[in-house]
Simulated scan of single mutants.
Amino acid sequence: MSFVSYNYPSRRIRHRDFALWLDTYQDTALFRADSSFRLTTPWAPKTTKGPVIPGLFADPHITTFNGRYYLYPTTDGYAGWSGTYYKAFSSSDLINWTDHGVILDHGPDVSWADNSAWAPAVTAKNGKYYLYFSGGLASGNTAKQLGVAVSDSPTGPFRDALGRPLIRSGQYSGQAIDPMVFTDDDGQSYLYWGQGAARVVRLNSDMVSFDPAQVRVITPTGYNEAPFVFKRNGVYYFMWSEGDTRSEDYRVAYATGSSSYGPWTKRGIVLQKRLELGIKGTGHHSVVRAPGTDTWYVAYHRFAVPAGNGTNRETTIDRMEFNADGTIRPIVPTL
């Protein structure tokens, strides 16, 4: 192969003394042979990828609406995870993402919380879009509460649906964070949440209320936070994060069950660090199925590569595959 100069197309590029030179020698067969380049290693296309959205984002919730992918993460990079707003991103191919800007800001939009905008999750029902989120106060009260906001569009703007928390701090044991909604085949929606203890409850048809008497504790061994539930081939999958998000050992485990309440059989760890690539702290994930297929993807955060930590995290996406018996194969994190 040979190279051609862009600025001087009449000249040829020649290698000489470990450098590239623009030469004006006569273009003969001998010259061409002498100035050609041989590849000692076959060229292959780049297969690694960076974070799917630029910047520091964590706790991604991925879903689809009307055949398009939507991603709702925590805005990261703040000491103590004290971010105040949520953004929405959308894509047709999981590669090229459109930033739709801020969809809910605790400052002007939420009267009962002004920071700790963590782990949003969005679902569609009744012709509306519902954003479930956690928030706290910057006044020294570190207790978190869960709220719900509503919009006519998956990209907002969202408004606080209640003007108060959906779940108050201290209403149940464990920290009120990390909400997630699963809607079963019959149209019934369930709210999952909690750090330290995992809980589930049937949501009323209005999507902004529930019967407290129906709340159930479903905490599996090793559970810390970030519950996520989906259904495939009649099997319910309950996934969660183990460890602390500040630890490089933060990881994802899962269980299977016969209903949205369980009972659950723990299957083990499916996503964890990959130190040979500098990948650490892989967790707080969500999964999505490509519309009309049995192809699945997992969105999760990791320490920003190469120098991130538990408050400087980035969001990425990888394939999630199943064995013939329905168990999830170990997810291989990639750069």
Rank of each mutant, 00 (worst) to 15 (best):
S2I: 09
F3C: 09
V4I: 13
S5Y: 10
Y6L: 02
N7D: 09
H15S: 07
R16C: 04
D17W: 07
Y25Q: 13
T28C: 00
L30C: 00
D34Q: 09
T40P: 02
T41Q: 15
P45A: 11
K46Y: 11
K46A: 13
T48Y: 14
P54M: 00
P54H: 05
G55C: 07
L56D: 06
D59S: 04
P60T: 12
I62D: 07
T64R: 04
F65P: 14
F65N: 12
Y69I: 04
T75Q: 02
G77E: 07
Y78M: 07
A79D: 15
G80I: 06
K87H: 14
S91Y: 04
L94H: 03
N96W: 10
N96T: 15
W97T: 06
H100A: 11
I103F: 05
L104H: 03
H106P: 10
V110G: 01
S111D: 12
A117E: 01
A117C: 09
T123I: 15
K125T: 02
K125G: 01
G127I: 05
K128W: 13
Y132Q: 08
F133Q: 05
T142Y: 04
T142D: 04
L146I: 15
L146H: 11
V148I: 10
P154R: 06
F158S: 06
L162M: 10
R164K: 15
G170V: 06
G170S: 05
M180A: 08
M180N: 14
F182G: 05
T183E: 01
D185P: 08
D186S: 06
Q188N: 08
S189P: 07
G194N: 10
Q195L: 05
A198C: 13
R199S: 04
R202Y: 08
L203R: 11
S205A: 13
S205R: 14
V208E: 12
F210I: 13
V215N: 07
P220V: 05
Y223A: 01
E225N: 06
P227H: 09
F230W: 12
N233F: 02
Y236K: 04
F238I: 07
W240C: 03
S241F: 06
D244L: 00
T245R: 02
S247I: 09
S247R: 11
Y250W: 01
A253R: 14
A253K: 13
A255Y: 10
T256F: 01
S259R: 05
G262V: 10
P263I: 05
W264D: 15
K266T: 12
K266H: 00
R267Q: 15
I269H: 01
Q272F: 03
L275M: 12
L275E: 15
G278V: 12
I279S: 03
W296P: 15
A299F: 12
H301E: 02
V305P: 04
V305H: 10
P306V: 14
N309E: 02
F322C: 00
I328M: 01
P330I: 01
V332H: 00
T334W: 06
T334V: 14
